[in-house]
Design a protein around this nucleic acid. Structure first.
Lengths: 135, 135
DNA sequence: CAAGTAGTTTAGAATAATTATAAAGTAATT
DNA sequence: AATTACTTTATAATTATTCTAAACTACTTG
């Protein structure tokens, strides 16, 4: 129930001190029951509008990147004009609606055969994005 | 042998007049025997250094986008800081070396099962990117 | 618990890729 | 050859992101 300690733990794990601003970011990211996708701007707005705290963009960027580096967030590369993040850090794949720029989580999609990587390189992870559009 | 007409055809197909600048862009893109990956900046440098023509960035952007729209180029979304394009327009997948930001074409990777898209949406295409790193 | 110090926040500047603009130039049509 | 419509270009504008340095705050230690 007391998420506060969980947030502090995540921050500490990420090498960050628990400050008022960072705890608000945690609340926005980790208190919802459902995972979700967001851009830095989305997150910034959520915090301002729902949590009534105006945090400078630099802080939001820094914190999100620290969480990403520590595995508390994932980045999903689907557009070149903006970065998208996912609070669902489990292995999974995505539908991406090209028009609405909407992401939908799906279970991990397995490959029939995994190709051999070039010599000297090893596979780190595999991204599968199924692009869809309204018919 | 006379690629010129092929270039003109591609330009016409893309709704563009064959100008000196655009023909140089075609030469850079379509004369190499092997397909390749590039950013706008790469392409711009190739044209300047190898083809000895300085073309304004706006023209390069416009032409590349027209070719992309017409299927003569593909965009590969692997990084959020830059757009990558591929002169290989066939269906295929990629290895992506995270460190060097190097792309390597591979045959299309098939999925074990293709998930059902959300109702009202249909699958347009599937991107598979296998991220690798030097070991 | 009062410093001290090490990490933090912030506004605003800097950077970088991309897109928009509008004047001067060029291809195509007549 | 003249007209028209499309192009190129330099430059400005835009947008996301990163940097910076001064003001601020958490944490440690005496």
């Amino acid at each position: 129930m007391n998420n506060l300690n969980i947030y502090k733990e995540k921050l500490r794990e990420s090498g960050l001190r628990p400050t008022r601003q960072r705890l608000k970011i945690c609340e926005a990211l980790f208190s919802p029951k459902e995972t979700f996708h967001f851009t830095i701007n989305d997150l910034s707005k959520i915090i301002e509008e729902k949590l009534d705290e105006k945090i400078s963009l630099a802080t939001v960027y820094n914190t999100v990147h620290a969480f990403k580096k520590n595995g508390y967030l994932k980045e999903i590369v689907i557009a070149t004009d903006k970065s998208y993040f996912d609070t669902n850090t489990g292995t999974h794949s995505h539908f991406f609606d090209i028009k609405n720029k909407e992401l939908i989580d799906i279970n991990q999609v397995d490959l029939k055969d995994i190709p051999n990587p070039p010599t000297g390189k090893k596979i780190k992870n595999i991204d599968v994005i199924i692009n869809v559009e309204s018919e």
